[in-house]
Every structure is written in structure tokens, then in C-alpha cells.
């Protein structure tokens, strides 16, 4: 016993070092799994309110840019409304997009330079935000909600190791998957493209709507480069995001109002 005590005392520095490193690595490893991220990413009210009050100051600096962006979106929406009015006069139809609801939110914390990036927005449970909802910016997809507190929520950015988004090529309607390799926040990687598919630079990629998180047809980006890895039947393509992740500010949390229904349908399929 005395020897043990002496040993602990003699090497306390090294032992403490090992202990603290172990704690750090355990925290880190746990946070890397998708759903644990929801519980561990800190959306505590302390960090949330610090960011929020700082944002209320820095907001003014990008006001001009943000205004222009919102004005452009307004213009686009107005033209869409007129088009839809014309269509709804003549025919009645069920459109997928009508089941999606939008909650406007503001980004209060965001990063682009880590391997795994998170977004924190200023809407939480009290506004009806729940995990597994999508976040879209006026320009395109931005992230997926993972953790929710009363007034704030954290989201995996598209710039995250575990953010995989089901996308389609607008021209051909072919399915593929989007992921991010961690190098440049402006470009992502479209994977699992069947080799018979012709993909050209400039092709538009949009969300497929298969994941229930994002509505169909939300802009993701445009192809800049097509890659055919030797010895593989599935090709890749480099994609330039339409969203400028470095300047995210006004976003929408989107959710499918029929999500519970669809989810239970998928679950019964799994049980069979």
C-alpha cells in the first residue's frame, strides 16, 4: 500500500497527463458517432447567449450583403408564386413541397476550417425544431439538425464527415451521394455515380428528397470536374457548393409535416 502510494506520488505528473489525455480522447471518439454528436455538442445556454449577443453586434457589418441576398430570394419567390398561381387555377395536384414547412432562423455560430463542422442556430424546441430536420440557406443545402435545446439547436454542417446527402442530377434524374473530404469548404464530392452516366462540368445537382430531411429539388451545387477512378464501376465528381458556408447567416429549418407518418411506414418495412 505504501509502495503504491509512493509510486502514485512519484509519477503523479505523468499519470495525470495520461488521465487527462484519456478523458480528451474518449470525449473526442464519442462525439464522432453521428447520434452521440447530438447529445455532446454543447448547445448550452451559456455559449448560446455569448454567441447571440456578439452576433447582435457583428450582424451590422454584413447587413448589406445579407440584404441583397434576401432581396434576390424574394424576387425569385415572387416569380414562383405567379407561376404556381397559374398552375393551380387549371389543375389540382398534390405537390411534395407543400408538405414541407419552413422555420426562419439565424446562424449564431458556424465554422468551415475543421474536419467536422457544426452550425448553431437561434431557434430551438420552443419554435418547434426537432432533431433530423434540415437546414437550407437561400442558396442551397446547409446542414442537418442533431441537437436541440429550448432556444438553440446544433446542426451537422454539410462540411462534416458524417453528413451524407442523397442527391440527383437535375438533367438525368440519376441518384448519387454527396460527401465532403475535408479539404476545401467550397467543394464537395459526389460519389457512387454509375459509370454509364454522362456527367459534364456545369451540371446542376439538387437534393433527391429520398431522405425525408430535405425537400426534393433544393440546390446543392454544380459539377466542376468528373473523375473516373481506375478499376471501379462507380465514378466520382467534384462539386462546387452553391451555398457559401463561410457567410451563412439567414437560414431556414425545413421539416416534413408528414414525417411521423413516413417514418412509421419505413419502420414497418424494417420490421418485416
Amino acid at each position: 500500500m505504501r509502495n503504491l502510494f509512493r509510486f502514485l506520488l512519484q509519477y503523479h505528473f505523468f499519470l495525470l497527463f495520461v488521465l487527462l489525455e484519456t478523458i480528451s480522447i474518449l470525449l473526442l471518439v464519442n462525439s464522432h458517432t453521428y447520434h452521440r454528436a447530438a447529445t455532446i455538442t454543447f448547445t448550452s445556454s451559456i455559449t448560446g447567449s455569448v454567441y447571440e449577443s456578439w452576433n447582435s453586434i457583428t450582424n451590422y457589418f454584413s447587413l448589406d450583403y445579407q440584404n441583397n441576398k434576401l432581396a434576390a430570394e424574394n424576387a425569385r419567390l415572387r416569380s414562383e408564386i405567379t407561376q404556381l398561381k397559374e398552375r393551380s387555377d387549371s389543375t389540382s395536384f398534390i405537390n411534395n413541397e407543400y408538405t414541407f414547412k419552413h422555420i426562419p432562423a439565424k446562424v449564431i455560430s458556424n465554422s468551415v476550417h475543421f474536419r467536422n463542422n457544426y452550425i448553431i442556430v437561434n431557434k430551438g424546441r420552443s419554435s418547434g425544431v426537432r432533431p433530423d430536420m434540415g437546414i437550407i440557406s437561400p442558396e442551397g443545402v446547409a446542414g442537418i439538425i442533431t441537437g436541440v435545446t429550448e432556444h438553440y439547436s446544433t446542426a451537422l454542417s454539410v462540411l462534416h464527415r458524417h453528413a451524407r446527402i442523397s442527391v440527383i442530377f437535375q438533367k438525368t434524374g440519376q441518384l448519387a451521394n454527396l460527401s465532403w473530404n475535408g479539404e476545401n469548404y467550397k467543394t464537395g464530392m459526389v460519389e457512387d455515380i454509375p459509370s454509364h452516366l454522362v456527367v459534364q462540368p456545369g451540371d446542376t445537382v439538387v437534393t433527391s428528397g429520398h431522405s425525408l430531411i430535405f425537400p426534393e429539388g433544393i440546390m446543392v451545387g454544380t459539377i466542376t470536374e468528373y473523375i473516373e477512378p481506375p478499376g471501379s464501376s462507380l465514378n466520382k465528381a467534384v462539386l462546387e457548393f452553391s451555398t457559401d458556408f463561410n457567410r451563412l447567416r439567414h437560414v431556414y429549418v425545413v421539416y416534413n409535416s408528414l414525417y411521423p407518418e413516413l417514418d412509421s411506414l419505413i419502420n414497418t418495412r424494417k420490421n418485416d
Partner: peptide
Amino acid sequence: LLLSGFLTGLTIDVFIGTPGLHAG
């Protein structure tokens, strides 16, 4: 000193949302 380092890193982690990374 070790504890101060851990606490400093952990505080940064709490703000960025990367538990354990800066602490380690």
C-alpha cells in the same frame, strides 16, 4: 499546469463544439 491546460482546451471545445479535441 496540466489541469490549466486541460481547462483552457475544454473551454474552447465547449464554444466550438468539438469535445476533447483542443483539450487533448
